[in-house]
Amino acid sequence: MSAALLAPEADDDRPLLTVSGLTKYYGERPGCLDVGFDLHPGEVLAIVGESGSGKSTLLSLLACRLAPTRGTIRYRMRNGAMRDVMSLTEAERRLLMRTDWGFVHQDAAQGLRMRVSAGANVGERLMALGQRHYGDIRAQAKDWLQRVEIDTDRIDDPPRSFSGGMRQRLQIARNLVTAPRLVLMDEPTGGLDVSVQARLLDLLRGLVADLGLAVVIVTHDLAVARLVSHRLMVMRQGSVIETGLTDQVLDDPREPYTQLLVSSVLQV
């Protein structure tokens, strides 16, 4: 990994995110054990596993919502420097989180301000970055509503009045308005109807490709992983037990546990 850092190659050949030895204990119970991976710009990594496998713990660690017991998370800042995210000052970390990173919650109510309008939800990050022209902010909000297929007539409505799928699309727009390079997603299609899920995944796939986003997506749904991700990590009891290209892992699972996961999906 460190070799990759020093390599004098084109920017995009260097990883955006390098995670190593990431471990979290809740008291004596391990949540996540010795996880490591590289994520390159434009790459989508899916983390799959059953509930309790440690995938949500891993995502919380990546998002700095939990402090790890051990391990490092290094991120390539916009100036090209690799920084340990945990060693950033709180000001730097909060700035990073609201500009260069995004986080899409399973429950949109956690990622949105439910009592302010859709337009303000999308515009908040812009205002936090110092934009002070109402018309411009609104134009960008409109543009993003269109890109996530929300009728721009709804710009002044609060997300309370939106359906589940619309809320999720609004949450995505709110995150992407500052053109982040890394987005973390926690079961973004969980709790949605199947047809709504399909539309959201389609939209996500398009956006990820257009914007060259790097994404870490946590899901228990292998079909979601298959549709949107390039690479896959299978977690069980806090550890990564199998990793590889998504199609490869799903078509030809090596571990018995992965085989069981894949076959249980196929039966459905």
Binding site: R113, V116, S117, G119, A120, G123, M127, A128, L129, Y134
Partner: peptide
């Protein structure tokens, strides 16, 4: 941290 974006969200809402 001089994070005052939220205050502008309130003003934005007023105008909207």
């Amino acid at each position: 941290l001089e994070e005052y974006g939220l205050m502008h969200v309130k003003l934005y809402e007023d105008i909207a």
